[in-house]
Computed example of a mutant assay.
Amino acid sequence: MKAYLFLALAIVTEIVGTSMLKSSDSFTKLYPSIATVVCFAAAFYSLSLSLQQIPLGTAYAIWSGVGTALTAVVGIVVWKETANLTTALGIVLIIAGVVILNLKGGAH
């Protein structure tokens, strides 16, 4: 259970880091740039801790899939990026892929 908390922390810090990356304006703004580096370092460290108990394929599928889907949602909500049926379908397919990999994947 603790490993999944580290994985959740890795996802959250990666999402915040990605949002700060957009705020950094190509690393031209100091504080968002620092936040980007700190968040990505925390994300990778947390991911490494989760890998002590979660198989690599499972952890990476969850981290990348959930991270991608939630980052798209943050882009829509926070950054006012456009959303359409294609965006929604893409998010659903990402989540479905993560679920399928975790149900029947070779990582177990």
Rank of each mutant, 00 (worst) to 15 (best):
A3S: 10
A3E: 03
F6P: 00
L7M: 06
L7N: 00
L7T: 00
A8Q: 00
L9C: 08
I11A: 05
I11V: 11
I11P: 10
I11W: 02
V12F: 07
E14M: 07
I15A: 06
V16I: 15
G17F: 08
G17D: 10
M20L: 15
M20K: 01
M20D: 04
L21H: 04
L21A: 11
K22A: 13
S24Q: 00
S24R: 04
S24Y: 01
S24T: 01
D25H: 14
D25I: 06
T28C: 04
T28S: 14
T28V: 02
L30G: 12
L30S: 08
P32I: 00
P32Y: 02
S33F: 05
V38P: 00
V38F: 02
F40D: 05
F40K: 01
A42E: 00
A43N: 13
A43L: 09
A43H: 02
A43F: 08
Y45T: 01
S46N: 07
L47C: 02
S48Y: 05
L49N: 04
P55R: 08
G57C: 02
G57W: 03
G57H: 12
T58C: 13
A59D: 07
A59C: 03
Y60N: 08
Y60P: 04
S64V: 12
G65D: 10
V66C: 06
V66F: 06
T68D: 10
T71G: 15
A72E: 08
V73T: 11
V73W: 11
V74Y: 11
G75D: 09
V77Q: 13
V78W: 07
W79G: 09
W79E: 09
W79P: 09
W79V: 05
K80Q: 15
K80G: 14
K80E: 13
E81I: 03
T82V: 06
A83M: 06
A83T: 03
A83H: 00
N84V: 05
L85F: 14
T86P: 08
T87R: 06
T87L: 11
A88K: 10
L89A: 14
I91K: 03
V92F: 10
L93Q: 04
I95M: 13
A96V: 05
G97E: 13
G97R: 15
I100A: 15
I100V: 13
N102I: 03
L103E: 14
K104N: 15
